[in-house]
Design a protein around this nucleic acid. Structure first.
Lengths: 225, 225
DNA sequence: CCCGTTGTTGGTACGGAGTACCTTATAGAC
DNA sequence: GTCTATAAGGTACTCCGTACCAACAACGGG
């Protein structure tokens, strides 16, 4: 049932062969038989391993979906905001670990329209997975279903924003940028009951404004460090 | 150069034939030749008109993109929020006007994975178009590029949320729900300078809390009617 | 009236994706 | 050893999408 190192090697060889050939002569000019031949297997084996020529570009997609789902399932009501951030970070880390391979995929997908469609389809699956959990978590809010969809879209978009910057070599610290992006995206997350509007508090006190400000500052720092 | 009624008729006949056959025997079981034959034209003509079997499902996609772009291009800085809402509404109205055809497409796309990928690809194009304009409009904000992407995602998501409800016959007043959805989505739109965080105001006054509340109430009513 | 020109259509042929089916080989299980 | 199960290769087929060519208007100018 679990991963056999033997079968993983065959898949890996196919992936490596595919990326080599795509870089050499382009995606359309590479046939499934070319890939299979370079990997030293038959054409049938290629289609058994991947099902389609596109799938060889995004081999661990299913596994990533599973890990996100697990992370979200493990959240308690108090840790949901953190779980959302970390589940999203799982994907970012995966690409960062891939390194040059991720960048090769990015160049490839950017130049082949057919692959772009495939990629956005995959992104949509992430978004739907987040939305499924969030609709449950936010079901008691007013406009909860809508806000769940919006937050799911924001999480995925914020992730892609940072990932794209890293893929283009426009950032040296993607993790910090990701933290900031998650903070902005999670502005939409209001754990049930906490209304999104501002509160006006009127009180009588002898304290000076400066003293009150000093009392409040730690709370603000805690909320947005 | 402009639309000839003759050529439009051929395209329309092909679209009608395609939807008929897809409903009769399903998407995969229908060949391009079947569609062409029922429309009374040759297979070559079909591919000349649509380029691919998928394209026949989303015939006016390009035109819609153009209309959104025009609407956004016509906005002035003061009317941008309205322009965003109306540009999005262009798409909603288009589907509402299609009526049963839109629902047939929805059923079809929902049951054929390959078409789902195509549709999300189209949605992504809308989102990128909005993002292109918003990045320009929000370039002077802190995190403007990120917030532009997020708002673009929110607009598209909010639209899809209402559209899907209408397609499933879960709403009798999609326009009102759309207005509400746009209000929620546009919470992210902060015309440059207006900071999104809450303000804490400390003041000394002899007024009673009730009097102050009475003063503030109209402002809150105005902000969220 | 004929004749090029141009644009639209149908037909044919081809390469390649993806599927179905069959055969082969390798590895355990007994 | 033999039997069985599982992974692999091979072959044939359908259909998508493209390239190319032939037929056939429409049309204006000679």
């Amino acid at each position: 049932m679990s991963e056999k190192p033997r079968s993983a090697t065959t898949k890996d060889r196919l992936v490596a062969a595919a990326f080599e050939l795509f870089e050499e002569r382009g995606f359309d000019a590479t046939t499934a038989e070319d890939i299979a031949r370079r990997a030293g297997v038959g054409r049938t084996t290629f289609f058994r391993a991947f099902g389609s020529k596109d799938d060889v570009i995004f081999p661990e997609h299913e596994e990533l979906l599973g890990r996100i789902d697990q992370r979200l399932a493990a959240a308690t009501p108090a840790t949901r905001a953190l779980a959302l951030s970390e589940a999203t970070r799982v994907v970012l880390r995966h690409y960062l670990d891939e390194g040059e391979l991720a960048r090769a995929r990015y160049r490839l997908v950017g130049s082949v329209p057919a692959l772009r469609a495939r990629e956005t389809g995959g992104i949509q699956q992430y978004q739907r997975l987040f939305a499924r959990w969030l609709r449950e978590w936010m079901s008691d809010l007013s406009d909860g279903q809508l806000r769940a969809d919006l937050l799911a879209a924001d999480l995925v978009t914020a992730h892609n924003f940072v990932l794209r910057r890293w893929l283009r070599d426009q950032t040296s610290d993607p993790e910090s940028e990701f933290d900031q992006a998650m903070r902005v995206a999670l502005e939409r997350y209001q754990p049930s009951g906490l209304e999104p509007s501002s509160a006006v508090v009127v009180l009588r006190t002898s304290a000076t404004p400066a003293a009150i400000q000093a009392q409040l500052q730690p709370l603000l720092d805690d909320e947005a460090p």
